[in-house]
């Protein structure tokens, strides 16, 4: 019974993925107003030839700010977790 349910789930997921691949053409979005704006004005407004960077750092700067904060928090978490194991080894301020 469990195997039949697993098989049905796999078939449903594979079918939906194949439906997405076959129905939508690659590189042709349904709504492209924002993309057209970026491609038309991004190079002159931000002065960059690399449009990926102009989107991630200028038009979507808040995303990159959040990403940097996430990385900072993750490194701080690792440092706080492993600080217990190496206490007193090379931290002179404790």
């Amino acid at each position: 019974m469990k195997q039949i349910i697993a098989l049905i789930t796999i078939l449903v997921f594979a079918g939906s993925l194949l439906m997405i691949v076959t129905n939508f053409q690659f590189g042709v979005p349904i709504k492209s107003d924002m993309d057209d704006y970026f491609l038309k004005f991004g190079q002159v407004q931000t002065g960059t030839n690399n449009q990926c960077t102009s989107v991630t750092f200028d038009f979507r700067g808040f995303d990159t700010l959040g990403e940097s904060t996430v990385l900072f928090t993750a490194v701080m978490g690792v440092a706080l977790m492993f600080r217990r194991f190496i206490r007193g080894e090379d931290d002179a301020d404790e």
Binding site: G47, T48, T53, F57, G61, T64, L71, F72, V75, V78
Partner: peptide
Amino acid sequence: TGGFLPIMNIAVGVEVWGGLVMV
């Protein structure tokens, strides 16, 4: 060229370098 995008790139690059080596 690029306004402050090179400054942002340098800032994020230095941060990622320090963070990943730190881990």
